[in-house]
Design a protein around this nucleic acid. Structure first.
Length: 306
DNA sequence: AAGACGAAAGTGGTTGA
DNA sequence: TCAACAACTTTCGTCTT
């Protein structure tokens, strides 16, 4: 994997208050809001330490443990050079022994069809997560899900790509990272339809409780994309709060609600964006935004002259 | 001329008999 | 398995700014 150079300061305002926004998959300057890089990779360990004691306890040698590699990243590899630890050449009989060891070591690592399947699937998960700029914990969650699916023998009759995409999507939902089914399906090279089918299947069989998408989670993404101000964001969030209180959100697509709230907020703060612009970032149509926001302003009776 | 509006027909999925 | 249904989309002609 090619390494991206570590960016330390904002190219816009030269400040170093950079924030890693994993939800949007972006590196953002806290000072001026400049989005430095839309591609963000998490190279950190899988744990976090909040004080020195925890740091000491958790720090350890070796790569972080991960669910995303079939043996959890715990492998030790037998080296290929025929020399011992002191760099001396091995005797012929030792050489033969090491050769046999290597052979069986390699065979034992990925053994059996389930293991091979798992290894392939987990690399597939990693690829998809990488394409979608997902944070580490989503990939870990997806990998865990996939392991459960394999254990329950639910793969039969389904493609690895399909199940992998569904796992990723479910993991996103559980971690409150907003990615549409369409985005995930595209990254996994399958159709939205197939992704949806697999996802529903998993939902039924795993009996996972997946919280419905909260419209709030969409807002910051929309605001960023449309380069709107914090005021507008606050306002949009308030609008959604109100809408939820008035029970205007149930049964409606959360993206549509969030888009409508963003639209109203943008008009109220005078930072107008067209319905078309918002529709494109929200992946809904103008008509849906219109329907939602008509409903909203009717019930709100805050008939600000929009 | 661009954007907003709304009617009408179509789509894909859910539900309940 | 099928029909009814709700939410959403697509398309298109009209109105508003």
């Amino acid at each position: 994997m090619e390494g991206s150079p570590q960016i330390k300061e904002c190219p816009e305002c030269r400040k170093t208050d950079l924030i890693q926004d994993y939800e949007a998959g972006e590196l953002v300057c806290e000072h001026c809001g400049f989005v430095i890089s839309p591609v963000l990779l998490d190279h950190g360990p899988e744990w976090r330490a909040f004080n020195t004691e925890q740091r000491e306890k958790r720090t350890r040698a070796g790569a972080p443990l991960t669910w995303a590699i079939h043996d959890r990243g715990l492998s030790t590899i037998i080296g290929w050079s025929d020399r011992d630890v002191y760099g001396r050449k091995l005797k012929p009989e030792q050489k033969a022994q090491v050769f046999r060891l290597r052979k069986w070591h390699r065979r034992s690592q990925v053994s059996g069809s389930t293991q091979r399947n798992l290894a392939y699937a987990l690399s597939e998960l990693t690829k998809v997560a990488y394409k979608l700029n997902l944070p580490r914990n989503v990939l870990e969650t997806a990998s865990m899900l996939y392991r459960r699916i394999v254990r329950k023998r639910l793969i039969r009759g389904r493609t690895i790509q399909g199940v992998a995409a569904a796992s990723i999507y479910m993991a996103c939902r559980q971690c409150n990272i907003i990615r549409t089914l369409e985005e995930v399906a595209k990254a996994a090279n399958i159709s939205k339809k197939e992704g949806g089918r697999n996802y529903r299947f998993l939902l039924r069989r795993l009996q996972n409780k997946v919280p419905p998408v909260d419209p709030h989670n969409h807002i910051s993404k929309f605001i960023n994309h449309l380069s709107l101000s914090g005021d507008t964001e606050t306002l949009a969030i308030q609008i959604i709060d109100l809408a939820q209180e008035l029970r205007l959100t149930s049964g409606r697509g959360p993206a549509g609600i969030a888009a409508a709230a963003t639209y109203i907020a943008s008009r109220l703060t005078g930072e107008q964006r067209t319905q078309g612009d918002i529709a494109r970032t929200a992946h809904v149509t103008e008509v849906t935004i219109r329907n939602r926001y008509k409903e909203l302003i009717k019930k709100f009776s805050i008939n600000v002259s929009l």
